[in-house]
Nucleic acid binder design. Structure first.
Lengths: 132, 132
DNA sequence: TGTATATATTTGTATATACGAATATATGGA
DNA sequence: TCCATATATTCGTATATACAAATATATACA
């Protein structure tokens, strides 16, 4: 039952549960999550590593950015948990607020729209990043 | 989300998850659980206290025995978790083996069949208990 | 190659909670 | 009241994992 209890441990820290909920909407990079939650890079990164070890997420490097998304294919038990979470938590104010901030962040940042290489060679890139 | 994460914490320890699964079949006393799991009284009691604090179970005293069962009414989120667990875990060998041992223990012990007072005044009671 | 950026990991520390062993409490019966 | 039984709690300790701060790593670009 190690796998089973590891899933529960992974979801027993609030920020990890909220990250998983956000990732059901699609891929996010570390910098997005830092901004959405107002947390330090170290904290976000640690929890993503935990979720990765637990089988929830995969990462994709694009230039210097790391993009995280739900692993594919998901272990079927994890998939069932995520379906359960969507049913149970989607309507919670704190989760809806996270989604709202996610949309805000995604519309004001470029790192989600294409990969680092093309961004960095785009005129005006640094200007865009200054907003942080 | 404290309630939410507390539920995940409660289920993230294997023995607690297995106790909850057994209690879906009905009330059990501490001594039954000790025998089913082959664990010490202290360990069983501590985990039951944790489950009680987390809102999963209630206890009923009958003489010197404490009987535990799923709380009623259950918090609706906990109820949903338990329904999920039944779906996902009922067929696992370890869970089925727990149920088998539970049936064995319940058929060979009396403390489940009536309360302590009547048992203690029943002839042959101590003999029955010696089997332990 | 050297610098800057994004992310990951390490370090030192704090907290939650696990454990076994011992002790305390509550009940029932002599 | 005193003892036995069932259970709960405490004590001392070990482990997992949280945190912030610091440092390391990987990549991009000059």
């Amino acid at each position: 039952m190690d796998k089973t209890t590891q899933i529960y441990k992974a979801l027993s820290e609030e920020i990890r549960l909220r990250i998983v909920m956000l990732l059901t909407h699609g891929e996010l990079c570390v910098c997005d999550l830092m901004e959405i939650f107002g947390e330090t890079q170290s904290k976000i990164s640690r929890h993503l590593a935990y979720l990765k070890h637990s089988g929830f997420v995969k990462s994709r490097r694009a230039g210097t950015w790391m993009h995280y998304s739900l692993k594919e294919p998901l272990d079927s038990l994890i998939e069932a948990h995520i379906a359960f979470m969507k049913e149970q938590f989607s309507e919670l104010p704190i989760i809806q607020e996270d989604v709202r901030r996610m949309e805000e962040v995604k519309s004001s940042k470029l790192c989600e729209k294409s990969d680092a290489k093309s961004l960095r060679t785009t005129k005006g890139f640094n200007k865009t990043r200054e907003g942080k």
